[in-house]
Amino acid sequence: MHPVAGPDAATVRWVVPHEPYAFLAAAAGHGALRELVADGTLAGVEALATCLQTRLGPERSWAAEADRVRAAVRAALEAQAPGCASGPCGSCPRSA
């Protein structure tokens, strides 16, 4: 996975090289991400067509929170599609 800028500075989209993307909806509700929303780090998490969109909470900065958010997104994706957020993935059609 890799982050790309969203429509505003608070929003980052996590692009996943894995098809089909049906698992993204389940990943958006993963416990690790819910915790970040609960403690105010994230204002919200949304599953889009090909990525997860994370919006930063108020008074937070990506410089300070990027690593925590990355770890949570990774855990969420790994739980739904093991091996595709990191490491080799033989079954993914878009894996290079």
Binding site: M1, H2, P3, V4, A5, G6, A9, V12, V15, V16, P17, W62, A63, A66, D67, R70, R74, A85, S86, G87, P88, C89, S95, A96
Partner: peptide
């Protein structure tokens, strides 16, 4: 939005993605 990860395993995932 922020730099790529420094951890080598995460960096590998970033490169692949």
């Amino acid at each position: 939005p922020f730099p790529p990860p420094a951890d080598s395993e995460e960096q590998t995932a970033w490169v692949r993605s």
